[in-house]
């Protein structure tokens, strides 16, 4: 059973802020969903290989050919905050 403490821990991993009442609501809802997902425990999967991908492709390589990238000025148009051609963020360390 998932507890409020678990939900707070996962929220921290997911980097999402939550209010106290949201944590409580999510604990209830995630609990119900996980209980339903527990259905998967009915199956014996000890001899089954996992499928992470349906296609029989493994690593896809390409020739190391030089190509033009997107123009930097074009890309920097999307920036929330920038300084010349760099993304600006709040301070990272004290």
């Amino acid at each position: 059973m998932i507890t409020k403490k678990d939900v707070e821990y996962v929220a921290k991993l997911a980097r999402i802020g939550f209010s106290e009442s949201e944590i409580e609501q999510f604990t209830k809802q995630l609990g119900a969903i996980l209980e339903y997902i527990g259905k998967l425990n009915e199956l014996d999967i000890s001899k089954v290989e996992p499928t992470s991908h349906v296609l029989p492709i493994k690593n896809v390589y390409r020739e190391d050919v030089l190509k033009k990238s997107l123009p930097v000025e074009e890309v920097m148009k999307i920036a929330v905050a920038k300084d010349k051609n760099q993304f600006k963020v709040p301070k990272v360390i004290e």
Binding site: V10, L43, I45, V48
Partner: peptide, 26 residues
């Protein structure tokens, strides 16, 4: 995001994510 983060988190990965990938095979 919360459900997925939980399923991939240390200690739960095998019980949820890996198990689901195996059922996907079935």
């Amino acid at each position: 995001i919360m459900l997925g983060t939980y399923a991939l988190s240390s200690g739960y990965y095998e019980a949820y994510y890996l198990r689901a990938l195996k059922v996907r095979t079935l």
